[in-house]
């Protein structure tokens, strides 16, 4: 059982245990769909939907599941919510569903989601699992938002499709290509680690 205050439980997902910048989890969608802000947000919301509902369900049924079959059960729970997210997006938001392609179904193998079930939801109360999932989701959306904003603004001169750079600006096409995703995320990880090291030194 975690003994943190509920606020701390939520806030840890934003920075100290940020799934992308600090734990290096769920990198595939982070790299793949962040070429435009709208895709990043859609992916963030879809993954959050799955993470939050799976965490609540797993935390509520944890006592009923024998330890030997827990992973299999978690996977079924997660896959169910992923399918729901995928179908609903395809039915009601076809353009976004098309842009995200196979990366929505791939949420099922996103290590953040299974990781949180195993590390947190299966050991904590429903309320705490919910707060934890909300925090991790916010952290994940935040990471997607930062990365996709940098890539869209520099790579296309737009933000959410609106022109933000003047006519003098020549888009850096590399930022929208796969190469730009890797390099931007690499630099962001470095910056995150540098900030962390500085604050830790400050505390010590």
């Amino acid at each position: 059982m975690s003994s943190k205050s509920l606020t701390a439980e939520y806030l840890k997902g934003l920075w100290d245990e940020n799934p992308v910048f600090r734990q290096l989890l769920g990198m595939c969608p982070v790299l793949a769909v962040t070429n435009a802000v709208i895709n990043g947000i859609a992916m963030g919301l879809a993954a959050s939907f799955v993470l939050i509902l799976s965490s609540v369900v797993v935390a509520s049924i944890k006592k009923l599941i024998p330890a030997q079959v827990r992973i299999a059960s978690y996977i079924v729970v997660i896959a169910t919510f992923v399918t729901i997210a995928d179908r609903v997006m395809a039915a009601y938001f076809p353009p976004i569903s098309k842009a995200l392609g196979p990366y929505v179904p791939l949420i099922v193998v996103n290590c953040i989601i299974l990781g949180r079930q195993e590390a947190f939801s299966s050991r904590n109360s429903v309320g705490r699992a919910l707060i934890d999932a909300l925090g991790m989701s916010t952290g994940f959306i935040l990471a997607l938002l930062i990365l996709s904003s940098i890539r869209e603004v520099l790579g296309a001169g737009t933000f959410l499709g609106y022109q933000v750079m003047g006519p003098w600006f020549k888009p850096w096409i590399i930022m929208i290509l796969p190469a730009g995703a890797f390099i931007t995320l690499g630099i962001l990880l470095g910056i995150a680690l540098a900030i962390e090291q500085r604050t830790r030194r400050g505390r010590a």
Binding site: Q68, V69, S73, V76, I84, R87
Partner: peptide, 28 residues
């Protein structure tokens, strides 16, 4: 118990998904 739990999880998930499938297939 293991078999029972897995069957139940599978059944609930399967029936939930068939509802979602029915509701969305036509629209997709």
């Amino acid at each position: 118990r293991m078999i029972f739990v897995l069957t139940m999880v599978g059944l609930i998930s399967g029936s939930l998904l068939s509802v979602v499938g029915l509701l969305t297939t036509e629209r997709i």
